[in-house]
Nucleic acid binder design. Structure first.
Lengths: 168, 168
DNA sequence: CTTGGAAAGTCAACAAGGCTGACATAAAAT
DNA sequence: ATTTTATGTCAGCCTTGTTGACTTTCCAAG
């Protein structure tokens, strides 16, 4: 089942048939469902949704980020993000501090309680990824990342890579 | 950058650090955005959404499928699916035929116009996948599929594989 | 220094597309 | 004859996207 792998000297058109591409498209659809299902289950207990998860994830990832930064990363309007942030702030999971240099900006941080929920959510998601990676094996993981990165829009890839730099 | 690949004799914990897992999680997030962006752009011209796309995709894939089949594959309620189907039928993209053996069932088919939209949508999506696969290379593609499949819930994997059988 | 525009954030209202619940109908199964 | 199944519909709610209008703050050109 290692279709088209290591065909010497060429692109090996095998896996580029429309049929093979459709398989991959459906794999993305079903896999993404699995990918989001664990956090979704947890969030139900808190009356939050996927949008809250995304905000929490990226605030944890880049503490002190501004609202503007965040909405660019998430790809939503500031109004949409604002509603989510408002509830998270009201519930004491996120803290918003007025910028020192530029007082128009709000810098976002997770509170201890916010970090706790973040840990619960990301642990669930990591557990699934860990299991999938173990099942697929190291070489598959490298290929997985390669393809995902190649699927992104250039702008998204730029953001993805710049996030990576900060932590590595 | 082939992290942990072909380390002899073991699991190679390298890529299973929380940090590496988070990279993969973010890669999924950004890649899925890319994955859906082309169809989304096309659908705007028709006043349809992602829900319509999913229905069209799976009706094309399994012509004559019943409403009940479809809502199990899509993982939505019949009310939710019905709203989408109603508009697609009203607009002449989908045809609903009463079952012959079991007259309670409705079998769903794309009309010529429906097939036309399906082709437009899936061609856009395939173009992106094709480019990503070319950029990542054959071995990466095999790994990509392995990991995606391992990420699915058992039930989703079952559906995914049973769809595969029909066509291969 | 002032003034006008741009940038960051907030509030309000609307739409898509999920959901549940209740109910109707027809056909199949017991 | 009764119950179960497959489907459809109506009503109402929630999340999360959207646009439009508004305030506050900053900065730069006169």
């Amino acid at each position: 089942m290692v279709e088209g792998a290591s065909v010497p000297g060429g692109e090996s058109l095998l896996f580029l048939t429309d049929e093979q591409l459709r398989k991959a498209i459906e794999a993305m659809f079903f896999a993404y469902r699995g990918f989001t299902s664990d956090p979704d289950r947890i969030l139900e207990n808190y009356a939050y949704g996927r949008a809250h998860h995304r905000a929490i994830h990226f605030i944890h990832r880049s503490p002190g980020t501004t609202v503007n930064n965040l909405l660019h990363i998430l790809g939503v309007t500031k109004q949409s993000l604002n509603r989510v942030l408002r509830t998270l702030i009201a519930d004491g999971l996120v803290e918003s501090r007025v910028g020192e240099r530029d007082k128009r900006e709000r810098h976002l941080f997770l509170t201890d309680e916010g970090e706790k929920l973040e840990a619960e959510l990301s642990e669930a998601q990591r557990t699934r990824m860990r299991a999938a990676f173990r099942a697929a094996g190291p070489d598959s993981v490298a290929g997985f990342k390669q393809v995902l990165e190649a699927m992104m829009d250039p702008e998204q890839r730029r953001q993805y890579k710049s996030l990576m730099e900060k932590s590595t």
